[in-house]
């Protein structure tokens, strides 16, 4: 087991380093802005003194690297700075800002929870469905079913998220009023009501993610079924069911887990558009709103969270496939 834990530690270290460098990239990018936050907060007409005062207040008079370290150490402690949309443009942001929330962390926390809920619901539907359909398509490859599935998934992957979202709204909310087309979620809602309002955005994401996942699962299984040891199992007279369960599945686990983790990472990008369409109060919508308002601290924080989740999921995929590789689990 020694070598496996060593490899995993290496990957974890690499993930951390990547996250660290990504944080530098994000911070640098934001600092490419002309002028600085103080100017942006107060607008062009502000007096020099007022700008100076705020600069000092926010630590903007410090050199670049000191500010970065300050931001990073804050971020590590969960303090992501002050949202100046919440402070100054409260009328734009909606209900949250009115209640006097000022810090980025406070703005993001409830949104983050909502997004996790949406992603969770999507994953619960998409993962079993995709794996089941993917295995089915691999087993019945080159049949009509497989070809139809290929056309369907390819179309669904190729369509922009908002197209699928509006088609679902059209069918399931407008023409057949089964689900609400807007997902206004608030605290104190019952779980079933919350689920109902999350279902339409979750279905949109499911369509895209399932298609991706199913294609990748199919490819992984077909690749596997071509291996000589599967032919050997067939030539031993093993029943088709047992060939799949006993011989294909243990080896397919690694690629399938990989596929799932990669697609959950893909969900992250997907939520941005889908949350906007359904006005779902998640981190994706917050991000888009902050981009439009140029609320730099929030944009910065959201970016870091998205990138962190992305890196984490890719890392998970990596580690899972190391763990499920018999060559590494049972070294010579």
């Amino acid at each position: 087991m020694g070598s496996v834990s060593k490899i995993i530690l290496q990957r974890l270290g690499l993930g951390l380093v990547t996250l660290f460098v990504v944080s530098i990239v994000i911070f640098t990018a934001v600092n490419l802005l002309p002028g600085d936050f103080a100017q942006s907060i107060l607008g062009q007409g502000a007096t020099k003194d007022a700008v100076e005062a705020i600069r000092k207040d926010l630590g903007l008079d410090q050199p670049f690297f000191a500010r970065y370290l300050d931001w990073l150490s804050g971020a590590v402690r969960g303090d992501l700075g002050t949202s100046f949309a919440a402070a100054n443009f409260s009328s734009f942001v909606g209900s949250d800002a009115g209640s006097g929330l000022g810090t980025v962390a406070q703005t993001i926390a409830p949104r983050f929870e909502n997004t996790m809920f949406l992603a969770g619901v999507t994953a619960m539907i998409a993962v079993p469905l995709a794996v089941f359909l993917g295995v089915l398509a691999a087993l019945y490859r080159e049949t009509i079913f497989d070809r139809a599935a290929n056309i369907f998934t390819l179309s669904s992957i190729s369509s922009p998220e908002f197209f699928l979202a509006y088609v679902l709204i059209l069918v399931l909310a407008v023409l057949n009023p089964i689900l609400p087309s807007l997902s206004n979620i608030f605290d104190g809602m019952s779980f079933s009501e919350r689920l109902e309002r999350t279902l339409l955005p979750a279905l949109t994401l499911t369509l895209i993610v399932t298609a991706h996942m199913m294609r990748m699962t199919r490819a992984a299984i077909i690749n596997l079924l071509a291996s000589p040891y599967i032919e050997m199992a067939r030539l031993k007279g093993i029943s088709p069911m047992r060939v799949i369960v006993k011989h294909a599945l243990p080896n397919a686990l690694a690629p399938i887990i990989n596929v799932i983790a990669l697609n959950l990472a893909y969900l992250i990008t997907g939520v941005v558009v889908v949350e906007t369409v359904f006005v779902y109060p998640g981190i994706g919508q917050l991000f888009v709103d902050s981009v439009k308002l140029r609320d730099i601290p929030v944009v910065q924080a959201c970016c870091l969270i998205f990138a962190g989740a992305y890196i984490l999921l890719n890392l998970a995929a990596d580690i899972m496939s190391i763990l499920s590789n018999p060559r590494l689990r049972h070294p010579k």
Binding site: S227, Y229, L235, K236, G237, I238, H247, P250, N251, R327
Partner: peptide
Amino acid sequence: KRGLLGKRIAYVAQSAAASFNPAH
């Protein structure tokens, strides 16, 4: 056929390394 394969007719492949299932 399945009843015969492995029981009365067996097969030895060119590459044993590839024809043994790595997971078992």
